Simulated scan of single mutants.
Amino acid sequence: MHAELLTKLKALGEPTRLRIMTLLLRGELTVSEIMQVLGQSQPRVSRHLKLLADAGLCERYPEGGWVFYRLARSRVGERLAALLEEMARGDDPEIARDLIRLNEVRRLRAETAQKYFEVAAEQWARIRGLHFSEEAVEAAMLEAAGERQFRLHLDVGTGTGRMLEIFANRAEEGIGVDLSREMLTVARSKMSEAGLANRLVRQADATALPLETGSADLITVHQVLHYIAQPRRALGEWARVLAPGGLLLLADFESHDFEDFRAEYHHAHLGFDREDLRVWLKEAGLEPASIKPLEAVGGKGGLAVLICVATKEAGA
């Protein structure tokens, strides 16, 4: 314990590295973003980040051509981070300037995210108009979770990160995965706006998750399954990651006949039959607790959404 603490303190014994840690307290950042805030060269920033990573104070996550850095999760690191946060609230002019620049970097990130979001929003609006409000889906999923508190929340196909946001007070930690880098940019921006620095997003395939077996005790999958060519394989992967006693919450369309969704919105499936979902969940080693439809807006002819709740036996 003492050796670990000394290693971390030595790594922090340099002004630039203290400044970097103060930035990472506000959420994950790329090397380029840290360079913009500090006004330092890429080799210099990368060297400081490597020293911090070697000391176990930060972690790096490659994502395509980018590399994101965030604070490492450890008891010693968390205590040091709390101390740094207290120091950052002081009147150090250099830290104050860094935080102003960080806000500008976040603003530019938000603008990029908004441009992409506006392009996609028109398509989403048409689909939403055929069924119910997003508020109804969110309320149903929260209700399905009951009063439980969770350790790790995994949101598959996180999109804008909305599920991470609405379950933020129900789980200690949260991670969202998505294949789209554009959507991850949107999600990171939303997490920053909501002040959820401890919620992460990562680029990953929904059928090959970068998480250990049994590591998440809550998994949410909101309007994702219909995009996946092999839904049974995906359910098997989610069951693998789900912890014994954990909860899977899935919201997706019930079977429908809007054939144009395949070409226009790239849906691999036109919704799902309730009995098929029940069978697939059982095949994956999960126990379907309930599969209930939300009534479509306007009654007959609209899209109905199923709220599926499944659990994993404590001894599984």
Rank of each mutant, 00 (worst) to 15 (best):
M35W: 07
R278V: 06
R188P: 01
A125T: 09
R240C: 00
Q203L: 01
G236W: 09
V156Y: 10
W238G: 00
R199C: 08
A3D: 14
V309F: 07
C58E: 04
V76Y: 10
G236D: 03
E122T: 09
K10G: 04
E275S: 07
R162T: 06
L270I: 05
S192Y: 06
I307D: 15
L179E: 06
G271K: 12
G65V: 07
A239H: 02
K300L: 10
I127Q: 03
G298S: 08
S180T: 02
L49M: 09
F167E: 00
A284I: 05
R75W: 12
V224D: 13
L142W: 09
R181D: 11
G13K: 15
L29P: 02
R109A: 07
H269F: 01
Q149D: 14
F261V: 04
T16D: 14
K115F: 07
I127Y: 08
R162M: 07
L294N: 12
P244L: 10
V177S: 01
F150Y: 10
H226T: 06
A121E: 11
A204W: 01
L18S: 11
D91Y: 11
A268F: 07
P244E: 15
K10R: 11
K292R: 13
L38K: 09
L184F: 12
A268Q: 12
A125P: 03
L225D: 03
A139H: 14
L211Q: 11
I166A: 00
A72D: 05
S133K: 15
R199S: 08
L277N: 10
V156T: 12
G214C: 07
R202S: 07
P293L: 14
H267P: 02
I228C: 05
E313F: 08
A289L: 15
Q203F: 03
W280P: 00
L249E: 02
A81T: 09
E212W: 08
Y116E: 10
E86F: 12
D155A: 04
M35S: 05
